[in-house]
């Protein structure tokens, strides 16, 4: 184990960087909770229950970010073995960035969607594609997809629990089958099925099947996000970047919580990624031992 590719020593010991970042994230989370419960002003109409917003919306943002990374990693896992598909995907990623930047300022957008947001999204898609391609091997993209789906489901679960807890005192109902809520539930179900596929399928093609499912599952993300613009929903319009307005102090607390949740998700993903790598190392070593054992036993028996 020790000498194999020189990796176990590195992956076994919890690096100092990880511990420092984890501690900083814990401090940030404590401060973010304090800001949400104490520093943020109380909303006049809803009262204290509005403070659920500081956990609900950042959790949704984090889940989206993780599912987005899962999508990019899944695409790469599918295209990398095929050179022409890989080249096509690379150019498609560049084209998405360029088209988004041009279209944002040329095509008329629905009220509430800023051209700069569209352009930034396009650039982020291209940048994320090339960053993941640069830093993750084919096996690495598979692990990254699994990890981000798992952590994303945890954050999406929080969205689905805190949402009804906020809706009950404000709307008078726990749940309604409108497009935003239903599509979020569908998104959660898609990624839960993705995790179940990975957990229970014994086929050697499981990572490929899961990657294909993730690519189709990601199609639900734009529906969740844009549903409040294109359909009449019970869910309110966004107050940030949309037509609404928000108190600057509330905005600051929201930004702190978004940052804290993103850092926390990053740390958790890092930890989970490391566990998965170690697990695969163990399985690989066991498989190698199983291959060598009969020969050793046979030579032992001959003596």
């Amino acid at each position: 184990m020790k000498g194999r590719r020189g990796r176990p020593t590195q992956s076994r010991s919890m690096s100092r960087t990880f511990i420092i970042l984890a501690l900083l994230t814990a401090l940030l989370l404590i401060y973010a909770a304090y800001a949400a419960l104490v520093l943020a002003p109380t909303e006049l109409t809803m009262g204290p229950v509005q403070r659920i917003f500081y956990y609900h919306a950042p959790s949704a943002w984090t889940a989206f970010l993780l599912f987005f990374i899962n999508f990019i990693a899944s695409v790469q896992y599918l295209v990398r073995p095929n050179e022409s598909a890989d080249r096509f995907a690379k150019w498609a990623a560049v084209a998405i960035g360029i088209i988004a930047c041009i279209a944002a300022f040329v095509v008329p957008l629905p009220a509430g969607i800023e051209p700069s947001s569209v352009a930034t999204t396009g650039i982020v898609i291209t940048a994320a594609y090339f960053l993941i391609r640069r830093y993750f091997s084919e096996q690495g993209t598979d692990i990254l997809a699994l990890v981000t789906a798992e952590v994303g489901v945890v954050f999406c679960t929080i969205v689905l629990i805190t949402g009804p807890l906020w809706a009950r005192p404000v709307w008078g109902i726990w749940w309604t089958w409108d497009v935003r809520l239903t599509s979020t539930l569908v998104l959660w179900l898609i990624y839960v099925s993705y995790l179940m596929l990975r957990r229970f399928s014994t086929s050697g093609e499981t990572p490929k099947l899961a990657a294909a499912l993730a690519v189709f599952g990601a199609l639900d993300m734009p529906l969740v996000y844009f549903s409040i613009w294109f359909f009449r929903t019970q869910h309110p319009q966004p107050v940030i970047g949309g037509g609404g307005s928000i108190d600057p102090r509330m905005l600051r607390v929201f930004a702190i919580n978004c940052l804290a949740f993103t850092c926390y998700a990053g740390i958790i993903c890092w930890f989970r990624y490391r566990i998965e790598r170690m697990q695969r190392d163990v399985e690989e070593t066991r498989a190698l031992e199983a291959l060598l054992e009969p020969r050793g036993a046979a030579s032992g028996g001959a003596q």
Partner: peptide, 16 residues
């Protein structure tokens, strides 16, 4: 206030 408390506790129970 109860809903707020339950929501924050639920978040940290799930994460924990």
């Amino acid at each position: 206030m109860t809903f707020l408390r339950v929501a924050y506790i639920a978040v940290w129970v799930i994460q924990g």
